[in-house]
Structures are given as structure tokens and as C-alpha cells.
Amino acid sequence: MTTETILSVESLSFAVGDLQILNDVHLHVLEGETVGIIGPNGSGKTTLFNCLSGFNSPQKGSIALKGRDISPYEPHKRAIAGLGRVFQNFGIFREMTVGENIILALESRQPIRSTFFPWSKQNRKNVATAREYLKQVGLEDKFGDKAGSLSGGQMRLLEIIRTLAFGAELFLLDEPTAGVAPKLKNNVASLIVKLQELGKTVLIIEHDLNFIQKFCTRIIVLDQGRVVLDDAPEKVRESRLLQEIYFGNASE
């Protein structure tokens, strides 16, 4: 069984004014891989995700999802094509209830007429499906609560399970442990493992190297907009280059 390349990024460059944020980035990810992306602040990690999602338009380069060039696609089309995104500053909708967040995601692939009337059968099915998804992350009893009342960790879990309910195949997780209490970090980790078991492809931006090396088969290091390292976690951890990037050259 051959594994397909799900994401193919070639020569991606993005600049704002004079500031070159991404510089000739190449990236290929196979289906089912879990890839960690690390790098110092300002190295362009979130911007890379924004270019993939379609919120920033790169000046150069191409992006292909499942073999299809998605560069001309608007963000919502890319999402429907299979791209899922979890935002660093929490992309859940705080004013809506926990349940509504999931239902919103489910509705994206359903025909309009099925959810046009609030009392329709599809709506009732969606409620039940939403509950099932929430059960998987232990948030079932929060179904009717405003999403803004959740803790950071719970919000993160909600966002990830929502992206799963949406039907994404490629998950872009931007610092999933930021703002998450240590206790709940394990829950986030288990959820990522579950995504792996479901055959999803996951890209994770993280600062916590210990966290991601548990499930990443590959770690990419970005520095000043370039991919400087792309290897197995152990090799990356021990590399001199990594230490230089983060801590500067010790021999100076």
C-alpha cells in the first residue's frame, strides 16, 4: 500500500513590505504522518499555517492538497477540500454554546435545505452526533454551556474535536498546549493519538519539544522563514544546529 502525499509545498515565499517572513519553504507530508514544526519566535511558523489556510497570499510558491493545487482557493474552499485548522488564540466561538460549535462544523457538509428549518430531522441528528463527539473529550455535560466558560484546555479539546467533526483530513494545530493546564495536556496528547489512529495527518506547531516528540515521526525546524532541519525527533533534538538557533553559538 503506497501512502499518498497529502500536502505538497514548493518554494513558498511570503513577505510583508520589506520583511521576508517565509523564504523558499519546501515541505512534503505523507498521509497519516504526524509532523512537528518548531522554531524560535518570529521564524514564520504561524505564517506558514496562514499561507496553507489561505489567510495570507504568498508571493511565490505553490501549495497542493491531495495532489490538487489549492493556491487559487479561498480559505473556506480549502477547508472543504480537507484542511482543518486549530488556532493559537483559540478558534472556538465563545458566545455560542459548546454544542453549537460542533453542530456548526457538522453543517458545513450538509445541504442547506436539510438544516433550513430548526426542527428538521437533520438538526436532531446533528445534536445527537455532536453529543457523541463531545463524549470523546469528556465535554458532554457542557453541551448547553457557553463555550467561553470552558478552561483553556477544554477549549483546545473542543476545537480539535470540532475540526474532526468537520471532517478535516489534514490538521494544522497551532500550539495546542498553549494556555492548557498541565493536567489537561495529556488529554490533548491522547486526542492527537486518536487522530493518528483515525489515519489523519497532523502538523503541530509547538514550543514544547517534549510534548511533540511523543507522537511525531518527523520534526521540522524553521528559522527565519526557512526550513533548516527536517528529521526524526531524536536526531533533531541532538543536533547542534538546533542548539545554535535557540541558544546562540556557545563557542562565541
Partner: peptide
């Protein structure tokens, strides 16, 4: 609330 997150949900 968050336009881009909405777009990210298709």
C-alpha cells in the same frame, strides 16, 4: 466573532 475560524470550517 472570529471570521477566519469560521472560514476554516468551510
Amino acid at each position: 466573532e472570529f471570521r477566519q475560524a469560521t472560514k476554516a470550517l468551510g
